[in-house]
Design a protein around this nucleic acid. Structure first.
Lengths: 140, 140
DNA sequence: GGCTGGATTTACTTTTACGTAAATCATTTT
DNA sequence: AAAATGATTTACGTAAAAGTAAATCCAGCC
């Protein structure tokens, strides 16, 4: 039996993931994952010096990767994570949190608008191409 | 009357824009705009050493800014621009162009999916906040 | 004709997000 | 016990996307 004593468990119910397991899953290097830890985005526990990643750490990594795909910086990703973390506490804090949610959502809506515009333009280019190819009598 | 001889013209029908005009419009520095020129994204004409930006250059800048908001690198923005530029020519080229359009669109659709997921999560956080505030009897 | 305010060029600097190399440590295998 | 394997730390390196500084140039003007 391996170190983790969960070789037979399915990915979702695993207690811990190793760093290399996660590098494979997300297609990043160990350096990258350790960098995110240095930046405070994740805090895997340790057994000795070795990092043990819980499912919650894995979920955070998924969040981080999604943020990266959307072009958010580490700082912005940290903000988003902190929104999820923050336990709704006192009234003033709640209002602040809602404000941050609204701001982030506006940012995302702007991005979605940009995306839709770009897609529409690409569709136009494609149509022109298809039209031109029809003229040329090319079989698509 | 100013240098450009079009002080009275509306922004859209201007013949030329100065670099500072554009920095104001887009909220970037002159360095940034010159950098994009160095990178070959725009090619303003010159009168002496001074750059004169046509409406088409301005439109390109809008494209660039949109790309930046979406987290695309200069190289990726260059690709997108080249898609628009390329005049549908020969059949093989057309097929290639369509392929590139499809790829870019897939990329954008993935981003939109990421955005929608994130927005949904933010909505959840907001709801929880509002619920908690209702419990506390806070007037929103 | 000297000043003033933009614009330009050149070149060095900075920040972000990692890459890479070297040395060390721990565990498992033989 | 030695070797192999994998993880860690430390530290320097790098590419992209500008920032910034210094010196120069040029047009209009009083």
């Amino acid at each position: 039996m391996g170190v983790w004593e969960n070789s037979l468990k399915s990915p979702e119910q695993k207690q811990f993931y190793s760093i290399t397991e996660l590098t494979r899953e997300f297609g990043v290097s160990t350096r990258t994952i350790r960098f995110y830890e240095d930046e405070g985005l994740i805090q895997p526990v340790r057994r000795g010096r070795t990092r043990l990643f819980k499912p919650s750490d894995r979920r955070l990594l998924m969040l981080i990767m999604r943020g990266k795909r959307l072009g958010f910086s580490i700082a912005e990703i940290r903000e988003i994570i902190s929104i999820y973390k923050e336990p709704p506490g006192e009234s003033g804090q709640l209002k602040l949190l809602i404000q941050r949610v609204v701001e982030k959502r506006d940012q995302l809506l702007q991005k979605r608008k940009d995306i839709d515009e770009t897609i529409a333009e690409l569709d136009q280019v494609e149509e022109q191409c298809l039209g031109r190819m029809a003229e040329l009598g090319v079989r698509t």
